[in-house]
Design a binder for these strands. Structure first.
Lengths: 138, 138
DNA sequence: ATGACTGCAAAGACTTTGCATCTTT
DNA sequence: AAAGATGCAAAGTCTTTGCAGTCAT
């Protein structure tokens, strides 16, 4: 038995918002962005709809960055870069590994692989620059 | 100015423990394992030492799985598999991408890449089996 | 009318932190 | 003796959840 799903303006706007940004939002970010147009929005609703979208395959978790879970509405395969300093997450669309890798791992290790995630860590241009300035100043 | 570091039996035992397991422990796991030999151990100390080890390059975070941060004392490059059902994390030593990939991303995107992480998601053999049993029973 | 969706606030889970005490050097 | 390491408990952050009211169908 599936649970029926009904229309909700807030949910609809939330999905549109998620699909129109590439910043890999956190719950808090979504909440703040929607607050102006939906003054009575609740953070609980944001969390509940994030779970809803995940269950329906509309978004995926990109993982937890600096304590906050981040999400991505892009379903095409691509990699991510996470800045260890400011926590920004960016897409690396050119870097892909191919879905056959999942099958290869499945076979080699006897696992039921459903997806993979390739994430690079380091410093974004902005943070690299401010780190250098710090070095000069000290 | 660096802060001096002094010997501590608890810290030493904690590192040994981390280095002698491949289960990618959480803070809680470490705490429970050390409790028998260190009855007065505090969870705060575990967290503080995990940060200490990270700062000294002795362990790395594998990310947050089902709400808990997991760590790895293996420094050689390798990939991971995370079971979405039970949260177990296993090494995939045969699957590596080569460090030149980091440099390639650095050049292509103008980022200071320090490392990458390749993680596969799916169901481990145990959970695959119990899921099938459920299906049969329903 | 039914049942899904939401706001609100409380509760939960994990992690961090302040302070007094103990330990290493 | 000085300064790092720890225990304990309180506080902090992010997320989940129960319940009553609201809204879509």
């Amino acid at each position: 038995m599936e649970r029926a799903t009904r229309y909700s303006k807030k949910r609809a706007d939330m999905l549109t918002l998620l699909q129109s940004t590439d910043c890999h939002p956190s719950a808090e970010w979504v909440y703040q962005k929607l607050k102006p147009t939906h003054p009575d929005l609740s953070l609980g609703t944001v969390y509940r709809n994030l779970i809803f979208f995940q269950n329906h395959g509309l978004i995926q978790s990109v993982g937890v960055v600096q304590g906050q879970e981040r999400f991505d509405a892009v379903t095409q395969p691509h990699s991510h870069f996470v800045c260890e300093c400011c926590g920004s997450v960016m897409d690396l669309p050119k870097i892909t590994l191919g879905a056959d890798l999942d099958q290869s791992v499945s076979r080699q290790y006897g696992l039921a692989v459903s997806r993979h995630e390739l994430t690079f860590h380091g410093l974004c241009p902005t943070c690299t620059q401010s780190n250098q300035q710090e070095t000069v100043l000290n």
